[in-house]
Structures are given as C-alpha cells and as structure tokens.
C-alpha cells in the first residue's frame, strides 16, 4: 500500500533521512524503531507530507505523492501526546474530520458514539481535553484519527508519554482496534516493547538509514549487527572465544559474535557451564543474577523464583538457545 523508494530528507547541511526504501502491505502495521535523533520522526513527517523530500519517491496505492499536500493524502496522524484541539470538546475533536467533510450531523453523531465506544470512552462527549488523563487523551486522539477511516494511520510514539501500566493496557487495546479496523499503520518509536506490542513488521533505523527490516520475529531472531541487537533488547554481545564457548555449550554452530538476552542463561544443576554468582536481585517474575563464567567472563542469568542463590555461590547454567542470536559480523574490536 505504501512504498518508499530511496527517500532522503535534508535539513540544511544534515541528512536526516538517508536513502530509505520501505514497503508496507495493506492491513499491516510497520514499526520504525530507532534511537532518538535517528530520523524516524522526520521519515514519518515526510510520509505525512509535512517535510519535503530532497530525493526519492513515496507512493500510496501506486500513486506518487509528490506535490500532494498533507490534507489531500487521506492519512491520519497521531502524535506522542495526542495534540487534541484544546478548545474543542471530546466529541468535537473526534468529529473534526467529519465536519470538515460536511457529513450530516446525524451521521456524525452516530459515528462519534461508535468511535468513543471503540476506544472505551463512552459518555466522554462533552469533556474538554484538559480534564482528561494522558491515556484518555491518547484514546480520543486515536478515535479522531480513525473517524474518517484513513487509508494509512501514522503513529508518532503513540504510547511513549504514558506510564508503564497504562502503556501496556493501551498497547493491547490499540493492537485490537487496529486489527478490527484492518488499518494500515506506520509507527515510529524508540521503544522496542512498543514496537513488539503493535507491529507486524519492523524496520530498524540508525543515523538516517534503515539498517534492517523484515517481519518482526525475523528481525528479532537475527539482528544484523551489535548495535541493532542491543537496541532490540539483547543484554550483552559476546565476541571471539567467549562467543564460541557459549555457542558450543548450546550445541550451535560457531560465529564471531553472539547476542545474549538476560534469560538465555538459566540456573540449572544439569547445566553445562560452571559459574559463580556475583550478585542477585529478586524481581516479580524471577531472580536476576550476574554471574562470572570461567573462560567467558561476566554474564546475566536468571533463576526461578524461590531459588536460594547468594553472591559467591557456585552454580551451573543451562543455555536457552532461543534467546541467543549469532551475529554475522563483528562491530568494533
């Protein structure tokens, strides 16, 4: 549905988006993941028509969007903090695009009711945005964006301004709503949790370039380099001998580097690696350890809740191979 070919955006002397090509099939959600300042928001604004391209083309449904102003693109844009119109009530905010199109009042009212129900805010019609909580504001913003059934929904870190519990709940709702409406959406975020919670496909962006893209589990299973692995939530990257030893213990083919999640090392008396506990911390789900493994060095590990491990104890570690990713190239020394 959306096709980006060799897209570049220049701000004065800096190249904010550098030669990006992406595809987004209809009905899917693509997350562009990257650290702040990597150009992902600029990319989103370029798709919305808010930034001029210095090179490349953006096509929607096969039609080139060059020269099509923002308001004729038929997309909808949802910002990090909602950006509701402060002087309009919730119902008027949601109805904004409908009123622009001179939809008859009765149909507008029905649609607003339907949308508020969809986002779980029935009865909020006459509230002003200033009286809503952050999560409610995001829900209204979502209802406003969905009101005219946009062919593409653009989401700029939609959950980042919310606290952890709220983020998790709204992520679930958002995923369901997007699925129900079969909405095509482009999401930019710096938070891999947000990306995993919402997206089908993932593109990792760094310094203006897309370094890896694909289905979300593929990207996650095989990060293309060390920085990407760390950004996707892998705890450490091991190199050289350490990498080979870990891979060998797990019965995997050797590689020059391996990215290890925290939960890749599990305390197990039948494990193949010998280690000594350096520190232990209890979390609601498991006990998190830092261990020193002979010949490998310091690693993260987990133990089931209730295990009695204390600093200085010798333990044995089992390797969960689904939580490792061999890296094809070694970045740096």
């Amino acid at each position: 549905m959306l096709e980006l070919r060799d897209v570049s955006v220049r701000y004065g002397a800096t190249l904010a988006v550098d030669d990006v090509s992406l595809d987004l099939p209809a009905g899917q959600v693509l997350a562009v993941l990257g650290p702040s300042g990597c150009g992902k928001s600029t990319l989103l604004r370029a798709v919305a028509g808010l930034e001029p391209l210095s090179h490349g083309t953006i096509r929607a449904d096969g039609r080139d969007l060059a020269g099509v102003p923002t308001h004729r693109r038929g997309f909808a844009l949802m910002f990090q903090d909602g950006q509701l119109f402060a002087h309009l009530t919730v119902a008027r905010n949601v109805a904004y695009a409908l009123r622009l199109r001179r939809t008859p009042a009765s149909r507008t009212a029905a649609r607003v009711r339907e949308l508020l129900e969809l986002v779980g805010l029935t009865g909020y019609d006459d509230r002003l945005p200033a009286t809503l909580s952050g999560g409610e504001r995001q829900r209204v913003a979502l209802a406003r964006a969905l009101a005219v059934e946009p062919r593409l929904l653009l989401l700029d870190e939609p959950l980042s301004a919310l606290d952890a519990t709220l983020r998790e709940r709204l992520a679930g709702d958002l995923r369901e709503i997007l699925g129900l409406a079969r909405t095509t959406a482009l999401l930019v975020t710096h938070d891999h949790e947000e990306a995993f919670a919402l997206a089908d496909r993932l593109a990792v962006m760094r310094d203006g370039r897309v370094v890896q893209s694909g289905a979300i589990d593929e990207v996650w299973r095989a990060p293309v380099d060390e920085d990407t692995a760390l950004f996707l939530g892998y705890a450490r990257v091991l190199r050289g001998d350490a990498a080979r030893r870990v891979l060998a213990s797990g019965g995997l083919p050797g590689a020059d580097a391996v990215a290890v999640r925290r939960s890749a090392m599990v305390v197990d008396p039948a494990g193949t690696l010998a280690a000594r506990v350096e520190s232990a911390r209890v979390t609601p789900d498991q006990v998190r350890l830092v261990v020193v493994v002979d010949g490998i060095g310091r690693l993260d590990a987990v133990a089931p809740l209730g295990s009695r491990v204390a600093p200085g104890d010798p333990v044995r570690l089992r390797i969960d191979v689904t939580r490792l990713a061999g890296l094809p190239i070694v970045a740096g020394p």
């Binding site: 604004r45 919305a48 028509g49 808010l50 102003p69 923002t70 308001h71 004729r72 693109r73 038929g74 997309f75 909808a76 844009l77 949802m78 910002f79 950006q83 509701l84 119109f85 402060a86 002087h87 904004y96 695009a97 622009l100 199109r101 913003a141 406003r144 964006a145 009101a147 005219v148 653009l154």
Partner: peptide, 26 residues
C-alpha cells in the same frame, strides 16, 4: 505547538481551515 495544526492537516483540513479551526482559536 505546530502539531495540532499538522494533525488537522493530516485529517484533511486545508491550510485555511487549519487557520480558522485550530490556529485562530488557540
């Protein structure tokens, strides 16, 4: 903040409509 205006534009408001419905009220 220019973003409410941009959100309005993305929802289909022409520049004049953005001025009338978002910018001037603010």
């Amino acid at each position: 903040d220019p973003r409410p205006g941009e959100a309005a534009a993305a929802l289909g408001a022409t520049p004049l409509q953005v001025l009338r419905t978002v910018t001037l009220p603010a």
